[in-house]
């Protein structure tokens, strides 16, 4: 397993307790209602939110373990993160965005740009390299965000609602583009979404979180065949 995480995060009026394992090349979808703790899960894996107990390991390296006082900060983790709304840096061009991770790790400018250009070609956006994020469409921004996250060759790729910011008309084509691109990524992937259609197209396995706990896990078909809670039933009802 690439990622082995079994941990809890306790806050004033919210507790997240999960057990997540993903293999290289596998995509795990995380579904659940708003406030279930999906984004918090990703932030914990990325090192942006420390866990309260348990541990997070990646390829045998411990990233976070409060009992052993281990905490690898976000910038030291081999984790790529595609954020909701993509969060492209508005003051930089598209190619500067993609090159950011390499520059931050000390790669020289020419090498970083060359690598960024390859990634932009991969996502089919090299002709937009010198545009500012405000000048490209939502679907394009999503692909830039993916290229940016992949530039640092992460062993775990996190995607937080990568399709939620798009309007319905473009969603379907962007989803299939994303599916194709993710197929070429050999790292482990975790995709957070509230839309079961995303999960069905983009993931190999899925878990469903309600109120900070995993209520069901399995493939789309096994879960759809036997929903564990009324929420799951309603969520998948239309599609199965």
């Amino acid at each position: 397993m690439t990622i082995d995480a079994r941990f809890s995060i306790v806050r004033a009026n919210f507790t997240l307790a999960v057990d997540v394992h993903v293999a290289p090349g596998e995509t795990l979808a995380v579904l659940g209602p708003n406030g279930a703790g999906k984004t918090t899960l990703l932030r914990a894996l990325a090192g942006l939110a420390p866990i309260t107990s348990g541990s997070i390991g990646l390829d045998g390296t411990v990233l976070d373990d409060p009992d052993r006082s281990v905490f690898v900060p976000a910038e030291k983790r081999p984790v790529g993160f595609v954020f909701q709304d993509y969060l492209l840096f508005p003051n930089m061009t598209v190619i500067e965005n993609v090159a950011f991770g390499l520059r931050a790790r000390g790669t020289d400018s020419d090498t970083a740009r060359a690598r960024a250009n390859e990634l932009l070609e991969w996502v089919g956006l090299s002709e937009h390299a010198e545009k500012k994020p405000g000048q490209i469409s939502g679907g394009q921004a999503q692909r830039v965000a993916l290229a940016r996250a992949m530039a640092v060759s992460p062993r775990l790729l996190l995607l937080d609602e990568p399709l939620a910011a798009l309007d319905v008309t473009t969603r379907r084509s962007v989803r299939s583009d994303l599916s194709r691109l993710l197929g070429a990524v050999d790292s482990a992937r975790i995709l957070v979404t509230h839309d079961p259609r995303d999960a069905r197209v983009l993931s190999d396995r899925m878990i469903i979180i309600e109120n900070g706990r995993i209520v069901q896990s399995g493939t789309f078909d096994t879960i759809a065949a036997d929903p564990a809670t009324p929420y799951v039933h309603e969520l998948l009802g239309d599609l199965s």
């Binding site: 976000a74 840096f89 508005p90 790790r105 640092v152």
Partner: peptide
């Protein structure tokens, strides 16, 4: 300023000081 931009920059490997210079300062220019 949206602190999530700083999170994004850190997840890309930016140290806190690098993120402050390249993300925070331009955002509040």
């Amino acid at each position: 300023a949206d602190a999530r931009y700083e999170d994004a920059a850190r997840s890309l490997g930016g140290s806190r000081w690098y993120v402050f210079r390249r993300i925070t300062v331009p955002a509040i220019r």
